[in-house]
């Protein structure tokens, strides 16, 4: 165990958690401006200390456990939910050679681990002993399982084009400015399906039926308060950021960009933030659709489409049609 193997995860984890808290502020200000209002403004100059105030508040809150809740499951659920969301950052290379663990099955690890948060979600819903939470958890399992398949298939398109599962290889294959999103038809279609699938896999509007405030009042996290709620929020936003990083890596050329090499991670983060803002923009523009409509969209539209796209990409790669 070398020193870098010990320090790198620590650094990455801290940076990620810091980024996640400030990304909530970015989302709130961006959303507020789209709604003709100002977001957080008073805490710190232009609200810059708002995430810290929120974190402090959540830490100081009383930890309420419902009497009839299944204690062990209820207490473990936030951790089981948070762990996969943090683990996905292990495989992302922030610059050539700068990553925690550059596995040669990088993207497979990412997709497999990010699908494990369903377990945490369902534990939260079941352990709360609350009809609303249970309904939401059942919907969540349905939805995330249905959307993981299009997610995987659309993420496999860059894998096919690059010819390797290793994430740094995929990023290197886009060096020279020709990102996978620029590929004539398959690049854009794959990006579109990727965005739709991540929206659904992260329970973002228009697919956030499982935390639908208007019917289910926060869904599976309705009984959580204080630090456990903070962990669940952290996990959700970490998953969004992780998927944004993955999207930036797969489609937008990761650390490619004008300027010297050490600007690479900054470009990477910028692209991830742009993807995050795109997700936020979609979130604050649409109403949500019902769960049966979400599942219909996944199984009837996205699955065949992504399968066909994968087949087409395979043919393109084998016959070297595209440049």
């Amino acid at each position: 165990m070398t020193l870098t193997m010990l320090i790198a995860p620590f650094v990455v984890l801290n940076v990620v958690i810091g980024m996640v808290t400030y990304v909530t502020l970015l989302e709130r200000k961006f959303a507020a401006r789209m709604q003709s209002r100002i977001g957080p403004y008073r805490v710190g100059p232009h609200g810059l200390l708002q995430p810290i105030a929120d974190a402090l508040k959540l830490m100081m809150k009383e930890d309420i456990v419902p009497t009839a809740a299944d204690r062990s499951i209820y207490n473990l659920a936030p951790i089981v939910f948070l762990l996969p969301c943090m683990l996905i950052f292990a495989t992302i290379p922030f610059a050539p050679g700068l990553g925690v663990a550059d596995l040669n099955i990088g993207i497979l690890f990412f997709l497999a681990v990010s699908a494990m948060e369903i377990v945490g979600l369902f534990m939260a819903g079941w352990g709360s002993n609350n009809k609303y939470a249970l309904l939401s958890a059942m919907r969540a399992v349905n939805q995330i399982i249905s959307y993981d398949l299009p997610f995987i298939f659309s993420a496999l398109v860059p894998v096919l084009l690059a010819g390797s599962l290793r994430l740094s290889d995929i990023a290197a294959a886009q060096g020279g400015g020709y990102w996978f999103i620029f590929y004539p038809v398959i690049g854009q279609l794959a990006f579109l399906f990727f965005i739709i699938s991540t929206l659904a896999a992260e329970n973002r509007v228009p697919f956030d039926i499982l935390e639908a405030e208007s019917e289910l009042v926060a869904g599976f996290r309705v009984e959580y308060s204080g630090m456990k709620f903070a962990l669940i929020q952290l996990g959700e936003y970490a998953h969004v950021i992780g998927s944004s990083y993955l999207g930036a890596l797969l489609f937008l050329g990761a650390w490619g960009g004008p300027g010297p090499e050490w600007l690479g991670p900054i470009w990477f983060t910028l692209k991830a933030v742009v993807l995050f803002l795109l997700v936020t923009w979609v979130r604050w523009s649409f109403v949500r659709i019902r769960v049966d409509q979400i599942l219909a969209l996944s199984w009837k539209v996205l699955m065949p489409a992504t399968l066909l796209l994968l087949v087409a990409t395979g043919m393109v790669v084998v016959w070297r049609i595209a440049p």
């Binding site: 961006f30 507020a32 401006r33 789209m34 709604q35 003709s36 209002r37 100002i38 403004y41 923009w281 979609v282 604050w284 523009s285 649409f286």
Partner: peptide, 21 residues
């Protein structure tokens, strides 16, 4: 239709907020 809706939100992004301090 989706792009129209998102364009409307984007348009409001650049309008002055109506908040009175």
């Amino acid at each position: 239709a989706v792009l129209k809706a998102m364009g409307m939100t984007l348009r409001n992004l650049f309008r002055k907020p109506v908040t009175v301090h």
